[in-house]
Design a protein around this nucleic acid. Structure first.
Lengths: 347, 347
DNA sequence: CGTTAGCACTCGGGACTAGAGAGTGCTAAT
DNA sequence: ATTAGCACTCTCTAGTCCCGAGTGCTAACG
């Protein structure tokens, strides 16, 4: 399954060229552009072999070659040299990134924007979260007689709020009493632990505790709910989307509620960067697109995922390097807030 | 400036027809389709007059007529009969809407989705908020030694949180003391009032108070930050977006950060529904689109705005009725939570 | 006078054709 | 093994033609 040295080199050039030009690449143009020490005829022969073996394909006779999914895959595995990002680029990214404020959703938006710009494709970054949400503190704030605002603070600084209706008018004092009791009983517990708990509760307290449990549970599932996406505009301007039909396709894919289906974050559970090329994604709608996914986060377990979405014709080395760098950077930033260990200040 | 009875009727028909078919409408087809008691020649004469007066236009000789902005305007002002939504539709909307949970952002998302579906265009709904945010309560929750989570609860149940870094390690007790002090001193105040306040503060307290003030201030500006948008897909499928260029245009308009520029919510400050047709919007990018905007909210002042965005060729009566109904419905729902007066249960 | 029939004229768009350009695959020579 | 040469294929663009829908005008009509 390994290619001869020359064919490998040729495949690599075809991919570079095609990533650049978005048009099928022919033998003639190849030798001219790269001053190859062979004639176009030789290149044609080699190309024919590459095609037999499935690394490139032919839109039609008399058109140049286009890399196939298999070709890209081989390129990503064996051919491309993933060199570190130029330190200037790193510096730029780091600089943009440190302008973020202190709110988490600001972070992820900024991260998505920076990533999208750096790789010139669409980028998705999910909010960081823990494996299992645990309650840190409950607050109840009176709104009017029978309604109050429930604020649930979870470990790792996630906050959710909702309006809670009581069957009877409640004073702020009563509410404070309830929240105090719940804080004593449930602090540090997860949703399931709360529902198993044996703490004695009044009916009103139980009402609140139930709402808290639901909040914790709903935080644990999903992950894309509050994800940030950027760069849609950029990617839609690429030549593959000249027809509005293709555009609609991609827009469907990038629809918020479709993301979990199309972007299998589970793949990114381990270390490092995962690449899914075209039909490697089971979803038909993704067959023309590639994903570069990575988890980010602290060693402690708090974290999220980021993904770059674009046509299979994407600049893989740059994209992979950028995703790797940015996920590492996000990890460091999270560490500064949530971990005991001070973050490495330089890289 | 008023049209003859017959010309008015004709304009109305042209608009109905064009809204339906999206193609220029000709005299011949007109008489056939609507069985008019005149010949096509007469209609042609009348159309010529309508064109002279600017109510319709001609893409080119030998094409049918297309309503102009002025034509639509006249139609909206004088011709269309805005009849109430069929009670079945109302019922459907009400039904869909009451499935919302209790979180505000869930409301606005649902409202946007319902609206978009009902009018078959894109819809934007902003989060409800007051004229000036006032502090209700501050909470500080320790995260690790030098960092804590600041939770700012504002009146009308808006909550924001951010991570706060202290120059020295802080115990939860200290944090609680600070928040207690701030709650005593600042509850009920707005951002400007806090900055003018004469309350004596330690350096640490001042640090926190400053952050609180910033949160309040940032909540007061914007309004589109957390707006919900739905129906982009729907509107992009309309025939006017057959070319991908047009699609990109609209996508630009609907970009989150562009919304404030393109959708002048200030216009909707008063009562009722505002319609902006094509070039009535100063922004060039909006010249092919119309807006139907309405404020929603309680009489008390808490509320937001909603807008429908679509091609000028839209079904105005239905859109206007739907926006009116939904804004009223949203107002009622807000009232149930924030107002003293019980909401009218039926309509 | 308002209305209508008739008709010449105008465009846009679809179907068709031709030719240029880029590229391939094969064969025979080096 | 490599290369030059060449016939062949296929897309893309421009050009042409023609149909259909629609207009605007004029002259006739009730």
């Amino acid at each position: 399954m390994t290619l001869t040295e020359r064919r490998a080199r040729l495949l690599s050039l075809i991919i570079s060229e095609y990533v650049d030009s978005a048009t099928p690449v022919g033998s003639e143009a190849m030798v001219r552009r790269y001053e190859l020490p062979f004639s176009s005829a030789t290149i044609r022969n080699e190309m024919a072999r590459l095609e037999e073996e499935g690394y490139v394909s032919h839109p039609h006779t008399s058109a140049g070659r286009v890399p196939s999914d298999k070709g890209y895959r081989y390129y990503v595995e064996a051919l491309m040299e993933e060199r570190d990002l130029p330190s200037q680029t790193k510096q730029t990214i780091r600089h943009q990134f440190h302008q973020a404020g202190r709110e988490e959703d600001e972070w992820v938006h900024l991260a998505a924007a920076v990533l999208a710009r750096a790789v010139e494709n669409a980028a998705v970054v999910t909010m960081p979260r823990t494996a299992e949400s645990r309650l840190k503190r409950v607050e109840l704030v009176s709104i009017q007689d029978t309604s109050a605002l429930l604020v649930v603070v979870m470990q790792q600084a996630r906050v959710k709020q909702q309006v809670l209706i009581f069957p009877e008018p409640m004073e702020q004092d009563q509410l404070t009493a309830i929240s105090n009791h719940l804080n004593q009983g449930f602090a540090g517990l997860s949703a399931t632990e709360i529902s198993r708990s044996q703490v004695q509760l009044t009916q009103l307290e139980w009402h609140v505790a139930n709402a808290v449990r639901e909040v914790l549970a709903s935080t644990d599932q999903g992950g894309f709910d509050e994800a940030a996406m950027e760069g849609v505009r950029t990617v839609l301007q690429k030549p593959e989307f000249a027809t509005s039909e293709k555009m609609l396709n991609l827009l469907d894919v990038l629809e918020r509620r479709n993301l979990p289906k199309f972007i299998p974050l589970a793949e990114a559970s381990g270390e490092g960067v995962t690449v899914m090329i075209g039909a490697e994604n089971e979803q038909d709608a993704m067959h023309d697109y590639s994903l570069v996914i990575s988890r980010y986060g602290t060693p402690g377990g708090i974290g999220g995922a980021m993904a770059v979405v674009g046509p299979t014709r994407m600049h893989y080395p740059r994209t992979i390097s950028t995703v790797r760098f940015l996920s590492q950077l996000m990890g460091e930033m999270l560490s500064t807030f949530y971990d005991e260990t001070p973050p490495p200040k330089d890289a």
